[in-house]
Design a protein around this nucleic acid. Structure first.
Lengths: 168, 168
DNA sequence: GTTAACAATCTCAACGTTGAAATAAAATCA
DNA sequence: TGATTTTATTTCAACGTTGAGATTGTTAAC
């Protein structure tokens, strides 16, 4: 059976037979793009039920998994989230208003802003992360673990080749 | 060697050992998300060199691969692009201003808008698509064809399970 | 043939991100 | 010390998308 990308590739093969041998990258990359849209849509619904935004969940989990004292500089959050500095400032603003994080000026380097999970923020993070993992698992239901491992490994190779090797 | 997602998973395993067995979905889904950001960034640079937007390339290629007369209704473009109707309207507006497409009112159903590639639009599509495929291939350089096929197959299964089986 | 239900597109305000410029602090060097 | 460069964050206008509602046209029911 075919998915939407099979249809796309089939149309190209019919329209431009000369390109048939060069369509294979679409099979991978277009599927990553389409799957990403599905993930984002699912994630949006998931966080909406918990009064969060997708970007806020991102900050929440990044701070939680960094371990005590659940504090990172704004700058460290940029590569972790793969967004620009302006987006991080906005997210912290919103989360600070919600009481999930607080800004702490660094005594050593007053240019830096240390973003710290509040007690409430940590509570939310603990609860949401467990649910988030179950939700994520359900999205992968049709694949067995071996297949997931194979895909993960290939994507790791790809990400490394594009320099996505560190988050700080 | 490890990528950014390995670091993330490692942090979680250290912080929440009780969740260790449930982290595997991250290995796949976080990598899809991060790879998607890289694809989008690459694509943005690619189209910028050609005076296009990513969404415009999407419309351009969708119309081209639909075959003569290179015409689809606005509604048909929605599932193809996986965006909302408002986004399609905006894209068509911009592309019409650039002379890449034209709106043709359907004589049969005057609610419908048929979006047609202009001659210029088709010329751009032909040229850009070949370059686009080469660019896409270069993004997958570190993977061999068998691996690509395996990943594509797994993602196809995933997409089908989420109902992404048709584009119109 | 009129009314109601449905369908396709457009409108528009709200939203989050980008990217460049501004601000402010620290580090480097003369 | 003072001047310059570098670093960290914030600001802000522009941009594209979303999602709800408005608009316009079609189909179905009576």
């Amino acid at each position: 059976m075919s998915d939407a990308v099979d249809v796309i590739v089939g149309q190209w093969a019919a329209q431009r037979p000369d390109l048939t041998d060069e369509l294979w990258p679409i099979e991978v990359l277009a599927r990553i793009q389409r799957m990403n849209r599905i993930i984002e849509k699912q994630l949006k619904a998931f966080v909406a039920e918990r009064d969060l935004e997708v970007g806020e969940l991102d900050i929440l989990t990044t701070l939680r998994r960094s371990g005590p004292p659940y504090t990172l500089t704004a700058g460290a959050l940029i590569p972790a989230a793969m967004v620009t500095s302006g987006a991080i400032t906005n997210r912290i603003d919103r989360m600070e208003a919600k009481g999930l994080v607080e800004r702490v000026r660094d005594g050593q380097d007053r240019r830096s802003v240390r973003v710290r999970l509040t007690d409430q923020g940590r509570e939310v993070a603990e609860k949401v992360m467990a649910e988030h993992l179950q939700h994520f698992a359900s999205l992968l239901a049709p694949l067995d673990r071996d297949t997931c491992d194979t895909v993960a490994s290939a994507l790791r190779t790809l990400l490394k080749s594009h320099g996505d090797t560190s988050i700080g």
